[in-house]
Design a protein around this nucleic acid. Structure first.
Lengths: 213, 213
DNA sequence: GTTTGTGAAGGATTTCACAGCA
DNA sequence: TGCTGTGAAATCCTTCACAAAC
């Protein structure tokens, strides 16, 4: 993109592009597991249902990873993208809310293989605090800040009922957390420096019904 | 928008707009439950962290619901949007995959109050078929097509492991389902007439890490 | 005075189309 | 020949700004 060096640090990459990179990583991993060494933007596009041009443009924000006439080396591209996304290391997370939803989230086997480790669980309910759930001893939320520091926790997962969600998110923010995965159905109030991503299946259903007639 | 009548049927509403409508509905419901009768686009914007202009523009795709100098009647706007989205009726769903994830989904108490009723559960595993889970007798997937017809099921929820997801989605499509809520981590192959929405917390985490340094 | 509804402007994102390289 | 990388064009989406309505 810029040609004074090989770093693109002055360019802000659009957030839509960042949200697509994990899709590329996923397909590249699958593709290399099937023994393929090279992939073209066209093949990637077919697998992801997007245009080859978009994939090439997205990748061009970060460098020139392909070879003309050939395509991309699957392993190298995967590794580059993992580094760009910060997926070349593990990330520690804490979950707040150990009701039905929280229990389902901690027992979901999809996080750990991707390097996301839920190291601590919290709840306000005194009946739940102290219980052992999926190998985690549930702590009182009053211990959140010290636990975050002690275990180098960078991600907060919110699985409390909506009435408590904003309060819990405020507590996470105060404890220094900058990234929140939110399962409660609200648009939380957070400082601009904090990133919230919400998982909201009801919203998905409610927009799908528009097209169902 | 067009001024020959009051119908905007020839205009295609952008999908981004449709995806925001459920947010408006949610806030309007909360706002009316607190006893408010009128809301302005500015108030809505503050609650949803978006600009008032965007909200007014979004609503203008469907009609003129506000009163200048006053704002929007909360109850009327909520009702109009529910009708537009098809939320003025209930929708029947079936879930396929009754492992840990499927059990969590059927026991999630957030669907039914919004009019999404999971009426049937399926699995391929013979140990699970026949079990009673959250009041649903798990059926064999071979009964999917007849059950879809019998119970007027319009939505398929996919909570099987990734290896079986595409096959299950093919089966749903063959049975006539046009709307799929997918919890498996893949970009499924479906005809253009079928709508798939994926819930993928790992993708969310993997893009958040880009900003965590 | 207040707030909507909306053309027009501005900004962001996607796609095109092709030079350049393997 | 085949495919990338990328300016330019096209498209899509958001914001502005103000006339009109209450």
């Amino acid at each position: 993109m810029n040609s004074n060096g090989n770093l693109n640090t002055e360019l802000v990459v659009p957030e839509v592009v960042i949200r697509r990179l994990p899709l590329y990583v996923r397909i590249l991993t699958q593709f290399s597991n099937r023994g393929n060494e090279v992939i073209s933007s066209e093949q990637l596009g077919l697998l992801l249902h997007m245009t080859p041009a978009q994939i090439r443009k997205d990748l061009s924000y970060f460098g020139r990873f392909g070879k003309q006439g050939r395509g991309y080396d699957v392993t190298i591209l995967e590794q580059k993208l993992r580094t760009i996304l910060g997926l070349d290391r593990a990330w520690n997370a804490a979950i707040i809310g150990m009701g039905r939803l929280g229990r389902a989230v901690v027992s979901y086997p999809g996080f750990a293989p991707e390097g996301f480790n839920i190291l601590a669980a919290f709840d306000t309910n005194e009946d739940i605090v102290g219980q052992n759930i999926s190998g985690l001893r549930v702590k009182s939320i009053s211990q959140l800040a010290t636990t975050v520091k002690k275990f180098d926790i960078k991600i907060g997962i919110v699985s409390v009922p909506i009435q408590h969600a904003q309060e819990v998110i405020d507590t996470l923010v105060k404890s220094g957390i900058k990234s929140i995965l939110n399962y409660a159905p609200l648009s939380p109030e957070v400082p601009a420096s904090v990133n919230v991503n919400s998982i909201d299946p009801v919203l998905s259903l409610q927009s799908m019904t528009y097209y169902m007639k």
